[in-house]
Every structure is written in C-alpha cells, then in structure tokens.
Nucleic acid binder design. Structure first.
Length: 889
RNA sequence: AGGGAAUUAGCUCAGUUGGUAGAGCGCCACCCUUACAAGGUGGAUGUCGUCGGUUCGAGCCCGGCAUUCCCUACCA
C-alpha cells in the first residue's frame, strides 16, 4: 500500500463519494432518539450550473452538517431544485427558436410537456456538480418545486390565504417586463443609472395665450397624460390651478391640478401626470380621481392611444415625438440628465410601469408576526447586523404581486365563471362556479411567482400539509445558510409562511454570507467573463482545496475575494497533510494496534513531544468547537491549518523522527500509539472542512472505525483519556526546546553557516529546571539544529561567540555558539546589535511606564508585575549580549 | 436622500472581553537534510485612514472628518 508522493484528488473524490452514498451515510432518520439538526438547502435553479456562490453556500452547510453528524445528531440536509419559472421557460423557448418554433405555436400543454422533458434530461446536472463539491445531502428526499406534493402545498396555501382575504386580484400599476410579457415583482427590478435627457415641453394653456413648461425624461408618455400638476403653494402657478392645458400633438385637454408631491425647485415646477405609466403619478391620479390612460401593448409598443405612433416601440416613439415636438415649436430645450431606470433582472430590458390585473398577497398583516419573531430573538441573524436591514424592509413592505404571465410554474388555482363573473378558488380543479353553479368556468391563465413555492419550502419538502413524522422531527430547521441578496425574496417570505401555516418559525438562525468576487474585487458574472467555474477548479485542484479556500476566507457576512493563487496554497496544504500521513504510516509500519481502540499508553512512557502534541491538539479542539459554534469558519480553518502544518508537521514529526530511529523499543511503541491516535483525531477534526482527503487517509490508518464521516467528532469533553496524557507544564518545556532550536537555527542562518555543516553549541541554563529540561531533550536539540557537540554548562568565556538569550515562562537559557574559524565576525556583531536594539526599545517603553506614577497606581497588579519582570529580563539579556559583543572585539 | 459596512505589512485579510500588532501569499538569502521543492530553514516589511475625546494605557471604546463599497428609496 504505497502512497504516491503527491495527493491526487482525482483518484479519490469520486470513489469516496460513491462509497458514502452506497453506505447511506447521508440519510436522516424520520424519528430518532438523537437530537435533530436540519438544514434546508436553498434550492438552485434546475437550469443552473454550479457557480462560486453555490460553492461557498454549500460548503458552509456541508461543514455544519458533517460536524453535527459526527457529533451524534440526527442530521437532515434537505436538497432540492427550483423550477425557476422564467429562467427555465426562456431556455426552452430558445431551444424552440432554433427549431424555428414559438411556444405559442406549440400551445400551452405541449410547451409545458416539452419543458418537463428538458428538466428530466438536463435538470440533474447541477445536482451532479453539487456532489463533486462533496455535499452530503439526503438525496433520497430531494424535492423539485413542481413535484406533486409541493404543488399540493402551494394550492392549499393559495386557497387558505384567499379565503382569509390575504390574496386578492386587482387592477394595479405593476412592473411589467415587455420582453417577458409578464408582471414582475418590485424585487425583480434592478435600478441602473442611465445618462438620459430632460426635455422641456410647452403645454399651451386653454383659453389663454401662455403655456406651461413641463420637464420630462419620457416625452412619449405624454400621450397618456391626464393632468399636469403644480405645487399647491407655488406662487407662480396659483391662477392656473383648475384651468386646462392642451396636450401638444394630440390637442387633448387636461386639467392643471395642485399636489404637494410636486417639487417646486425641480425643473419648471410643473409635472405631467401619467397615472398609467408612473408609480408616483399613479398615486397622484388616485388622489385626484384622474383617468388612467394606458398607452402600451404587452410587448411595450404603443397601443391605439398612441395615434400616429401606434405600434412603435417606446424608444422609437420617443424619437419621433421629439422630432414632431421640435418641428411644431413645443420643445423648449433638452438638458443632459442622469437618472435611475428600472431594468428587468431576468432579461435586462427596461421595465414599464403597466396597469394590469394581477394577483397580490396582502403583506402588512403577514409581516407583523414575521417582524416580531426577529425582534424577540426567536430567529437570529448571523451576523447580527442583518437584523436591522430585515426589520427595516418589513416596515416598508408592499403587497406582493404573485401572478406571472408565463406557462412554466404553478398555475393559479382560480376559475372565473363566464356567466356571473364570480371567481372560484379551489385546491381541486373547479368544475362549476361556486356562486351560480354554472359549468362555464375557466382557469386563470397565470402561474405563480417562483418565490411563492420557495416560501413554503421548509415545510412543503417535509410532506406538509400532511402531518408527517419528518416535520415533527425536523421542523423548524436549525439554521438557514444564504446570501444577503435573497433575504427579502426568500428568507422573509419563508418566515411569513412558516408562521402562518406551521405556527412556528422555519429556522432558528439565519447565517448570511457574503458574495464571491474576483481577485480585483469585482462581482463575478458570466457577462464580465471573470466567473471562475467551481467544477473546473475542482478538476484541477480538488474539492477539498476549493472548500478550504472558501472557508479560510469567509468572514462574517463580508464579501470575499477569490484568487487561484490562494487556492493553490490550500491545494499544497492538502499535499502537506497527505505527505505527513505518508511519513506517519511509515513510522507505524510495525505498529500493532490493540483490539481496543481506546487503549492508551502510560503517561510515564510517552515522550515530551508526545505530551506536547496532545496539549496542542486539545487547544485545537477547543478552538474548533468554539469557532464552529459561533460560525467563525475562517477561524476554524486557520486553526486547523496552523495545527497541521506548523505544529504537527514542523515540530511534532521532527521531534519524533529521532525516536523512531532510536533504540528504545518502549519509547518507540509509546510514540507509535500517540502518533496513531493523534493522526486519527486530526483527520476527524478536519473532516467537515476537507471531507475527501480525510476519509481517504482515515481508511488507511491503523486506528480507525468503519467510516470517518460517521466517526465521532473529537472535543475536549469526549474521549478525555487521550488528551489527559498531555501536560501543560511539559508542553511549556517543549516550547523552550523549540525556542532553543530556533535560536540555534537563527544563529546559523544569519551567520550564513551552511545547512550541511555541523557546529558546536553551549547551552547555559540559568536555573535548575531549565538544566534538567535541556538535558532530557539534548538529542532532539542536536538533531534538529545539526550540532556536533552540545554542552549544557555555565556560559563561561564568551569570546568569539554568538549568543542568544532564550526564555519561556520562568525558564531561561543563553544559547552560545563558538564561532572560531567559522564566520565573518562582523555578521555576528550585526546580528547581536540588532537584538540589543530590539530589547532597548522594549526597555525604554517599559521603564517609561514604570516611572509613571499613574500607571503604577492604576494598572492591575499582574500587569505591573509582568512589566517589572519583563524589564529585568530584557536588561539581563542586554548585558549578556553586550558582554558577547565586547568579546568579539 | 436614508441605512449599513469597511479603512491594519507590497497584496488578501485575522486581531472575540482595552495591556507593547499576526497569518497566508508575495519578497530576500541559503538548502534537492531518506513525508512533502505543491518542500525545508532563516530574514525583511506596519506613524493600525485622519483629527479629537475617555483611560495609567486605545488597532479595539466615544465623537467629528476623509475615502471606498453595499443596500433601500426616489427627483419628473
């Protein structure tokens, strides 16, 4: 069983994942004596492919899920995919277009059938990509938002809300996407800054010879003007209020009204009012009972109200109207003007405010309880700062337009009676009118906003409205992990629906992570061409490396910049771990594990280094536990990284080498046992972060259970017997040894002594304890600093010597290297002077403080004592160094 | 306009209760030392944006300012 000297993720990941799946390790129990832990995966669009945002989002969830699974919880990670109304419909329409067909030609039923076929064929792609990343979801429970069960929930919710008067149909001004020929919600509108123009236009006053000058960015909407408005207190126009003006080009007469909405200082202080095509004007129109004149067709062209401009698209009509206005002398001037224009987040087209019959959810009564559960802390946001944003939004929430003029989605369960016009809303197909009994009923053509079904996801996936064991066990879920961009689309609406239909919140904690940006800090997007493909990166660097890169950088709700360079670094980390294992397995070749995995060595038999690594392992376990509990993933990842590389590899394995090469069988056996345990424990600790490599390693360990993924997660509280073998005191002693070795290496390095050249050293301990510790670790010091002779004795003559004082806790030693015949003395003088300078800086600072009566009077005793000690020691070290310097001549 | 966040080494960022600044990458020097050159050892680098306040003591707490970013809402 030879391991290659490079970790090759490609050989490992697919095989391991398949094995986990076959063994059913991801499965949740409907009912269990173990505490539940559940996470609902934000269902990605079936049309989608995995992007870096998913990679980050899923990695976080997988870490939590694996950590809890190993900690003995009954874990459910509920996966699924979203039908994504518009996105999916567009994909299929594009396909049809290639065949020269349209969905209208196909007809609704055939089109929907065709879309299902597309979903069956391609919809699984993103799921496969999720598996590449290592997502340990309970795949057998995977749902799709158009599944029969989920659809049933959707219909029930719709009907219930309708019966409660919380869903209504109404003629309203809504955001209309001409490209989709559908309504979209406020949230689906992106405001972009556009450099446009402000046109000043004359509206002649009826029965007078003057005119009013109106400023507008959208001259074409004047065809739909039903008034002009001035501020009620604007002196300039007092006499005109109540009079009429004539609409240029059409000659239609409209009133001059007064409304406080008008800003006297902007433009001319006169506003044209187009209630059917502007949200503010709509409100003004309602206040003044103005006619609402719709001038647009569904595709964004002008309708018959447009007169000679009929059938022209908005942009074209605008140009023609401007030409005509100019020709007839109505256009006063044109100013450059930048303003915000709404764009459809799906198609990018300019959104038109459009008067149309739509279905709405009345939000105010539903939002109130959803606000309270956050205010009261029943649901907490992590990081907490999002609470404010959430509450702010809930305060200004408007009714939610839920109907879409699409074919792909949940069709609205409402039937209109041809005879009496009554609307029958029903979970089952309505065969007759609920009022007059007529059989002439037709179902509403529209489908529901995709987010409507998403809002029910936390319980619709668990079998609701049926009363299932699954819901009893796992609802509410424990934590929801998502980006801030869908707090309002999704999180808020899930809270609302959960409270309304389950009488309980859908989750306890909302963990919000940031966005992934490129190395320059730009948002990753396909159109910018800077989007990294996670699947490609997994191919090249491995899923573990990618996961670790994301985890190491994720800081509470802040965006993170992704760079391949960093990914490479963590790929190297995987390799480091792999090679450490390779070494350890070599050292454990003749290791005979006891049948009892819990068998521990005797404390008296294990080495200093063994005790030290166990102490450090305990520290790591405490750090990881703390970090994971508080969602500090980067802290966790960094602690793990540092332990593996800088504690385990750099020091422990080096300390242990002489033992394995030595003659003491007892010592060797004890160290083997410790090494085997430490390695086992390390991969268990790292598994949630880097599941593949750790499972692969685990399967090769002499000490192991059946599968790492279901082994227990180590904490300082469980399996205490191993960690109890470490002693903090001994660990400090090993830290002294490390410092001594570092001092010797420093002397070598700075004096340019060749790594291969052995040198002699004198260690002058300044107390008995240090003397003993040095004596017992002499071999390690000699090996790791490449010494020929190592004397532990008093300092003696310092002539022609490099000197470095070392101190850890109360232990102190001067590290001395005779340099006779070795090096340029000047180099060593420089080195010593540098150290003295550093110490001097300390001394000046501390002496200043000690001389300050205020400090002495107010600072706590231990701080004063610490300063005092530090000062004395620094002074002592300086005098040693100065003596050495003097002897160097 | 309102709200939020950020400003620490060349770059990306940690720094959880105030007690003399850390990591990774990059950089410099030396080394293919039998786990790993995707490696080892050593080294250099910071008036912690700015001004003031609280404190014996501030990267951290408070206030002002500057710059940058994000969100929400909009001026026709």
């Amino acid at each position: 069983m030879e391991l290659s000297d490079r970790y090759n993720s490609k050989d490992v990941e697919g095989r391991i994942y398949q094995w986990w799946t076959e063994r059913g390790f991801f499965k949740a129990q409907d009912k269990s004596t173990h505490s539940p832990f559940s996470v609902i995966l934000p269902p990605p669009n079936v049309t989608g492919s995995l992007h870096m945002g998913h990679a980050l989002n899923h990695t976080v969830q997988d870490v939590l899920v694996r950590w809890k699974r190993m900690s003995g919880f009954n874990v459910l990670w509920m996966p699924g995919t979203d039908h994504a109304g518009i996105a999916t419909q567009s994909v299929v329409e594009r396909e049809l277009k290639k065949e020269g067909k349209t969905r209208q030609e196909l007809g609704r039923n055939n089109f929907v059938e065709r879309t299902w076929q597309w979903k069956e064929q391609y919809g699984g792609r993103i799921v496969e990509q999720m598996k590449r990343l290592g997502d340990s979801c309970d795949w057998d429970r995977a749902c799709f938002t158009l599944d029969e069960g989920v659809s049933k929930a959707v219909r029930k919710v719709f009907v219930d809300l309708y019966n409660k008067g919380l869903i209504y149909k109404g003629l309203r001004l809504i955001n209309w996407s001409p490209a989709l020929e559908s309504a979209i919600s406020d949230l689906e509108v992106d405001h972009k800054e556009i450099k446009g123009s402000l046109y000043h236009i004359r509206y002649p006053i009826v029965g007078g010879d003057g005119h009013l000058e109106v400023a507008t960015t959208r001259p074409e909407t004047m065809l739909g003007d039903t008034a002009v408005a001035v501020h009620p207190e604007d002196e300039r126009y007092q006499t005109l209020i109540g009079k009429e003006v004539e609409l240029p080009l059409s000659g239609r007469k409209i009133p001059v009204i007064a409304d406080a909405y008008v800003d006297k200082t902007f433009g001319s202080g006169v506003v044209k009012i187009t209630p059917a095509h502007d949200f503010n004007d709509y409100e003004v129109g309602k206040r003044h009972d103005l006619p609402m004149l719709n001038i647009l067709n569904k595709d964004g062209s002008l309708n018959e109200q447009g007169g000679v401009y009929k059938n022209l698209k908005v942009q074209e009509a605008r140009k023609r109207i401007l030409v005509d206005l100019e020709a007839k002398g109505f256009l006063v001037k044109t100013e450059a003007h930048t303003h915000q224009v709404g764009h459809c987040s799906r198609t990018g087209c300019v959104v038109e405010p459009f008067l149309s019959e739509q279905w709405f959810v009345k939000m105010a009564p539903l939002a109130a309880p959803a606000k309270r559960v956050v205010e009261s802390g029943t649901i907490t946001f992590e990081p907490e700062s999002w609470t404010k944003t959430y509450l702010h939004w809930m305060n200004i929430i408007e009714d939610w337009c839920i109907s879409r003029q699409l074919w792909w989605g949940h069709r609205i369960p409402a039937w209109t009676c041809r005879d009496c016009g009554h609307i029958t809303v029903s979970e089952m197909e309505a065969k007759s009118c609920g009022k007059c009994g007529s059989a002439q009923v037709v179902q509403d053509e529209d489908v529901l906003d995709t987010w409507f079904s998403s809002a029910l996801w936390p319980f619709s996936t668990m079998g609701w409205p049926a009363d299932t064991e699954l819901q009893k066990t796992f609802y509410p879920s424990t934590v929801l992990v998502t980006g801030f961009d869908i707090i309002f689309f999704w999180v808020a609406r899930m809270i609302i629906m959960g409270l309304e239909f389950k009488q309980d919140v859908p989750f306890r904690t909302v963990y919000i992570h940031g966005l992934i940006r490129d190395a320059q800090g730009k948002k990753m997007s396909k159109s910018l061409g800077n989007a990294e493909d996670p699947v490609q990166l997994i191919e090249e660097y491995g899923a573990d490396a990618l996961r670790f890169t994301l985890l190491a950088q994720i800081a509470a709700g802040r965006d993170l910049k992704f760079s391949v360079q960093r990914l490479e670094g963590y790929r190297n980390f995987m390799n480091k771990l792999w090679n450490a294992t390779r070494f350890a397995l070599g050292a454990l070749k003749d290791f005979e594990p006891s049948s009892d995995l819990n068998q521990m060595p005797n404390r008296s038999e294990i080495s200093y280094a063994d005790q030290w690594i166990l102490v450090k392992l305990g520290h790591l376990e405490r750090e990881l536990d703390e970090a994971l509990k508080t969602y500090r993933f980067s802290d966790a990842a960094n602690a793990a990284y540092s332990f593996v590389w800088h504690t385990f590899c750099d020091w422990y394995l080096e300390f242990v080498k002489p033992i394995f090469q030595g003659n003491s069988v007892t010592e060797k056996k004890a160290t083997q046992l410790v090494l085997a345990h430490v390695l086992n424990r390390t991969v268990r600790l790292l598994h949630p972060f880097i599941p593949f490599i750790t499972e692969e390693i685990y399967q090769k360990l002499p000490l192991r259970g059946e599968a790492l993924i279901v082994d227990t997660y180590p904490t300082v509280k469980v399996d205490k017997s191993l960690l109890a073998l470490g002693s903090e005191d001994v660990a400090e002693e090993v830290d002294l040894i490390r410092e001594v070795i570092t001092a010797l290496r420093n002397i070598r390095g700075e004096n340019r002594i060749k790594p291969g050249q052995k040198i002699n050293a004198r260690l002058a301990p300044l107390d008995d304890k240090t003397q003993k510790v040095l004596g017992e670790n002499k071999q390690a010091i000699m090996t790791m600093s490449r010494l020929e002779i190592c004397e532990i004795t008093e300092a003696g003559n310092l002539s022609k010597c490099a000197v470095q004082p070392v101190q850890v806790g109360t232990m102190k030693v001067d590290v001395i290297v005779p340099l006779e015949g070795l090096v340029d003395i000047e180099e060593e003088k420089k080195r010593i002077r540098k150290t003295i300078e550093k110490l001097h800086k300390d001394i000046v600072g501390i002496s200043g403080r000690m001389a300050d009566a205020n400090f002495m009077a107010n600072a706590p005793e231990d701080i004063v004592a610490q300063n005092k000690r530090q000062l004395e020691e620094s002074k002592a070290q300086v005098s040693t160094l100065e003596a050495a310097l003097a002897r160097l001549g």
